[in-house]
Nucleic acid binder design. Sequence first.
DNA 1: GTCTATACCACGATAGAC
DNA 2: GTCTATCGTGGTATAGAC
Lengths: 199, 199
Amino acid sequence: MSRQTRSRSAETGARIRAAALRLIARDGYAAVSMRQIAGEVGLQVGALYNHMADKQSLLVALMREHLEALLAALEAEALPEDPEAALEGFVRFHIRYHAARPDEVFIAYMELRNLAPENFAGIERLRRSYEDRLQAVLERGAERGVFAVRDARVATMAVIAMLTGVTTWFRPEGRLSLEAVEAIYVDMVRKAVGAGRPG
Amino acid sequence: MSRQTRSRSAETGARIRAAALRLIARDGYAAVSMRQIAGEVGLQVGALYNHMADKQSLLVALMREHLEALLAALEAEALPEDPEAALEGFVRFHIRYHAARPDEVFIAYMELRNLAPENFAGIERLRRSYEDRLQAVLERGAERGVFAVRDARVATMAVIAMLTGVTTWFRPEGRLSLEAVEAIYVDMVRKAVGAGRPG
DNA sequence: GTCTATACCACGATAGAC
DNA sequence: GTCTATCGTGGTATAGAC
């Protein structure tokens, strides 16, 4: 009854977000209409507004869900304490997680400008919190003298940009397996931050 | 006369593209209306169509102009033949050129999905041609044994993603000067591709 | 919670006077 | 080459019946 109603409603909301995710990743937030999303789910436009306040909050929900899941997954990874091992773990995790979710990644990076300022701030905080995990690894390695990093913040941004870039060209059916790509990036990132060098 | 008319017309076209560049970089192609662009230039909507066939060809013109200028500027740079020197030259050039043109860069990377397929192909060819300049440097270095690169194509994509990422956070009034940022990236990129190591 | 119907507005693009 | 005016379409969001 009430439980069934609630669960059915929650399910519809999830189906709406799933459809919106796919459409927005393909065409962009501004180019996707509420009518399109409704059609994809088999609803009329008006029914969407039983599940969200407006179009903007739909976008916010997609980004927030993605970033919170990303953070939770990184937590679950439980990176080792050793900086070199933690760095390799982070690189492999980031590539694997992002390559598996190209739609979410695309939206979270490209649709930031469509967020109202108050929403932008919250999303940026989540992203920053993710970046800070990598930065902490680099700083720990630098302190211990196992990494040679001139500026941990810049190195963090450089590594994340490099890794996220994989989603723009990687195709599962392509020349290289994901495992092979991970290995190449682990190698490049390790070298970039001066890991494994004679002290 | 006819010359004046032509030059005035060309100038209006340039002002339209400049306004469109700024607006599209800020709000996205789909979110910017022809009316907005016209208003910015001080024209009525209809007048825009004296200078372009439609909205799509405006976007194509912006991207094409950017990528052609980028390629020409790289040519003008005349990278040295020595791989290590050429790599440093490319890194500094790419960061400097892109940091100075955030609007163009943003559009060229983010609005690809708004291109009709036939336009997409041409734009992608230009981008690929730019990437190939870096790839050639990496391959030459690898052949001579001065770089340690497992896969030149992947390394190319990794380096470009890393460098272009600078535009997402760099601010001239920020903590680091552009010169300082360049130096940090030269260092990281050199290490990432194994330059300057004992043979 | 979904439906039909609609309010209200903005869109890209074009026509024709000047 | 720019203007005014308009066509035809589709946008977000809401109202009220069921």
